[in-house]
Every structure is written in structure tokens, then in C-alpha cells.
């Protein structure tokens, strides 16, 4: 029994052996060198330039974002300019007179009038439906360009139209690009 106890006392487990590894520790001299080297390497990473492909990607993505924003603004502006012209072309008293669409519409209307019991009322309704609810009478634009290097910051465009008693204003700003478009009608 005594031998058994003695052998148990002398028994060494694998866990105990592994814990001896905790004693493999570097001294203070090692840590002083370690700290100095680490600080140097961290400073190097702070001032180190990104690889060329990262720089290119960053530049390209920045340009794409800028170009997309300017492009979107241009499309929006173009639509705003084109829209009244399109609407105007359907008017009976427009500068170009009646066009094909209007003539077709008028023909259909006349057919309808001929078959309708109240001709006068139908024509009146037709005319009132064809007149647009607004018209652009003036377009004014202003661009304050402080240069591409300034990332298009203080640019502005304005479209305005005034129709007698009705006065309203819509404005759209394209966030981040510094562009703002105002539609007054």
C-alpha cells in the first residue's frame, strides 16, 4: 500500500509536463528590443505608401463616383430641359403648329365628335385636356465653377418658369457632389 501511494506521488502527468512550458519566458532585455522594433515597424506602416494597385483602385473608384454624380446631374438637367419641349410639341398653338401626333389625336377626336351626341362639349373637353398644366417660359442657368480640383463643390444650376398665378418650386440636391438643381414653375 505504501508503495502504491509512493508511486502515485511520483506520478507525472502530461498536463504537468506541458505546464513546464510556461517557464520558457523571455527576459526584460528581449522585451526592450521587442518594443523598440515594434514601434519602428508601426511607424513604418503609418508612413508607408499603399501598393500601386491600391492607389489606382482608390483613384479609379473616386473618379467613378465623381463622374457618376456629375453624369446623373447632367441627365437630370437634360430631362428637365427636354420635358417642356416635348410637352410643348403637343400643344395646338405651339411654335411649329400641329404636328403628326396632334393631328392623329385631333382626327380621333373628330371621329369621336361626329359620333358623340354633344359635339360642342366634347371639343371643349378635348381642348382643355390637351393644354398642359404648366409651361416653361424662361430658362436661366448659372454655374459657379471653382475648378475640378475643388471636387465640384459650389456648382449650382437653376431652371425657372413662371406661369401667371401659379408659382411653385422644386429643388433637388445631389448629396456629396455639391450640385443642386432648382426647378421653378
Amino acid at each position: 500500500m505504501a508503495d502504491t501511494n509512493n508511486s502515485h506521488e511520483k506520478e507525472v502527468k502530461v498536463e504537468e509536463l506541458l505546464r513546464l512550458k510556461r517557464a520558457e519566458r523571455p527576459g526584460q532585455v528581449f522585451w526592450n528590443t521587442f518594443d523598440r522594433e515594434l514601434h519602428q515597424r508601426m511607424l513604418q506602416t503609418l508612413v508607408k505608401k499603399d501598393p500601386w494597385y491600391v492607389q489606382v483602385l482608390r483613384g479609379v473608384s473616386g473618379r467613378i463616383a465623381q463622374t457618376a454624380a456629375v453624369g446623373a446631374a447632367a441627365v437630370f438637367l437634360a430631362l428637365m430641359v427636354m420635358r417642356p419641349a416635348l410637352v410643348d410639341s403637343t400643344r395646338p398653338n405651339g411654335a411649329n403648329g400641329a404636328n403628326g401626333a396632334y393631328l392623329a389625336l385631333q382626327k380621333n377626336a373628330l371621329d369621336l365628335v361626329n359620333s358623340a351626341p354633344s359635339v360642342a362639349a366634347a371639343i371643349s373637353d378635348l381642348d382643355s385636356n390637351l393644354i398642359p398644366d404648366y409651361q416653361i417660359e424662361a430658362i436661366s442657368g448659372s454655374i459657379t465653377d471653382s475648378g475640378y480640383a475643388n471636387e465640384y463643390s459650389p456648382d449650382s444650376f437653376e431652371l425657372a418658369s413662371y406661369d401667371r398665378d401659379v408659382y411653385a418650386m422644386d429643388s433637388v440636391s445631389l448629396g456629396g457632389t455639391g450640385l443642386a438643381i432648382t426647378l421653378v414653375y
Binding site: 504537468e16 517557464a23 520558457e24 523571455p26
Partner: peptide
């Protein structure tokens, strides 16, 4: 790494 001298005096 140099092993800590304490370990050689440990019970294990």
C-alpha cells in the same frame, strides 16, 4: 527560449 531557472527547483 531560455527556461526560467525557477522551474528546476519546482516540485515536478
Amino acid at each position: 527560449e531560455k527556461i526560467d531557472e525557477e522551474v528546476s527547483n519546482s516540485e515536478i
